[in-house]
């Protein structure tokens, strides 16, 4: 069940980016969700479930791919179902990121 890296998109090496914490992930997720929903990022409440914004189950599944491409965090496709708000998902991503010491290794995808 662990999605394998496809290798086509090579993310920036983590060292070249600012360290990612909950706040950074929140900002990124709000921007991403805003794109999904076609509304300003300021309007996204971090505690409102994605589904209440009209993000359907299948579209929510595609978020994990964005996360993988952007941060080389290899998570389950259902990560946005299990952490269904910006706040919850940002926390999950920050923990994943930290547990990898900011050095994700594409050869050993994390168990979620």
């Amino acid at each position: 069940m662990v999605p394998q890296p496809t290798g086509a998109h090579v993310p920036d090496p983590p060292g070249t980016q600012a360290p990612m914490g909950e706040r950074e992930f929140t900002r990124w997720l709000k921007a991403r969700l805003a794109e999904f929903l076609g509304r300003p990022a300021e309007d996204i409440d971090p505690r409102t479930p994605f589904a209440e914004y009209g993000l359907d189950s299948v579209a929510a599944l595609s978020l994990y791919g964005d996360i993988e491409d952007e941060f080389a965090l290899f998570l389950e496709p259902t990560v946005a179902w299990d952490h269904p708000t910006v706040e919850a998902l940002a926390r999950c991503l920050a923990e994943e990121y930290a547990s990898r010491g900011g050095r994700p290794d594409p050869d050993t995808p994390a168990e979620v």
Binding site: R32, E35, L37, D56
Partner: peptide
């Protein structure tokens, strides 16, 4: 494809 185009919208 823009993210918006992946949803029901």
């Amino acid at each position: 494809m823009p993210a918006k185009d992946r949803t029901v919208l």
